[in-house]
Amino acid sequence: MIIYPLLQKGATIGVTAPSSGVQAELHDMFKLALSRMEKRGFKVVCGDTVWTQNKAKSSPAQKRADEFNQMMQDEQVNLIIPPWGGHLLIEMLEYVDFENINKKWLLGYSDTSVLLLAITLKTGVATAHGPNFVDLRGEYWDDTTAMWQTVLSTEAGGSVRQHSSAKYQREWQHHNPTPCVFHLTEQTCWKTASSNPVKIQGRLLGGCIDVIRHLIGTPFGDVQGFRKQFTNGESVLWYFENCDMTTTDLRRSLVQMKLAGWFEQCSGIMFGRSPANHPVENYTIEDIYQELSDELQIPIIYDIDCGHVPPQITLINGAYAEVEAEGGKGTVWQYFK
């Protein structure tokens, strides 16, 4: 059985930095996010790690884990959202108290997805792949981003539907902020490897492939154990997004996942839009999607609303999902069962 937390109105958000903290020159930006969330009725509690950043991490691994463990066990904290991702979250996993993961949401993406996936695989507690705390600093949220609150407020046994965005942001323009943070200028188009309409269902698992691939072969990446213990062996519907990798690096990572058994009983794979996917010797991202679909004999949907090219749908690790893609549009039903 998957355990689903529930976001209550007026919840207290704990902000801790299990990966990167906020550099001093960006503290004002973070404080804006904090004040905007408080105006929306949330109480916000910040850990010490949020305010520091040195040598590609907010603080030493043990300190990051201690602060996360404390917030996870603090009954006054209802939801944990890191400020953003980073690079070295994996360092603190061995110090996380997985025996005492409480029934509360953890929300984020990028490097945070290492912790999201590890928690769900080891404990069966659902986790939320969606906006980071600083992404929520706008005067208003676009329709896709705003669904994080609705999704996390869905009760166990319930369901929630999300739609593909109308437009997405091609590139970050931090020097030119908008009222909703993102510059949504490009027409969203969900695509399939077959170019035909696709419908897939299965238990959602995934994250930023650059970092979650490093869970393979560790105690934190036991996908088959998760399926047996928590889902009665149901098929997995994977979602991935590529932050920095070239096509050959991505291909190596996907082959490693296949060889490690991550794609056994896989019903399909979804890939988010990417700022990377750079071709190597004419080896394109479309080549990879087609090869993977042919090898695994599964449908593949790509350029979905997920990851470093916002906005993004809030995807729940552990939830049962039905996903449809047709005519450039997508629908995601998630069932908290």
Rank of each mutant, 00 (worst) to 15 (best):
Y4M: 05
T218N: 01
S253Y: 15
Q76N: 15
K39G: 14
G157W: 09
F263Q: 06
G330C: 04
L116R: 09
H174G: 08
A17L: 07
V223Y: 05
K191L: 07
D74H: 13
L106N: 06
G158Q: 07
E295F: 00
V45H: 00
A65F: 05
W333Q: 14
Q149F: 01
A321E: 07
C266L: 10
L292F: 15
V160T: 04
Q53A: 11
G130M: 00
G233I: 08
L117G: 14
R40L: 04
A128S: 05
G217T: 11
G47H: 05
P179D: 04
W238Q: 12
L116S: 13
R273V: 03
V22P: 00
A193S: 08
Q76P: 12
I301L: 03
T246H: 08
K103L: 13
N242K: 13
L6G: 13
K63C: 11
T154Q: 09
Q73E: 12
V255E: 12
L7W: 04
G207T: 06
E91W: 02
F30Q: 02
L89S: 07
Q169W: 04
H27K: 09
E326A: 03
P179C: 01
N317K: 03
D287I: 03
W105N: 13
S19H: 04
V151F: 01
N196K: 10
I80V: 10
V323I: 04
N54P: 11
K103T: 12
V332E: 03
T284M: 08
P179W: 10
E186G: 10
T52E: 15
N232A: 04
A276I: 06
P310Q: 06
L32M: 13
I212F: 10
S113D: 13
N282T: 05
Q297P: 07
T123V: 07
L205K: 06
S274N: 10
M92T: 14
T16H: 03
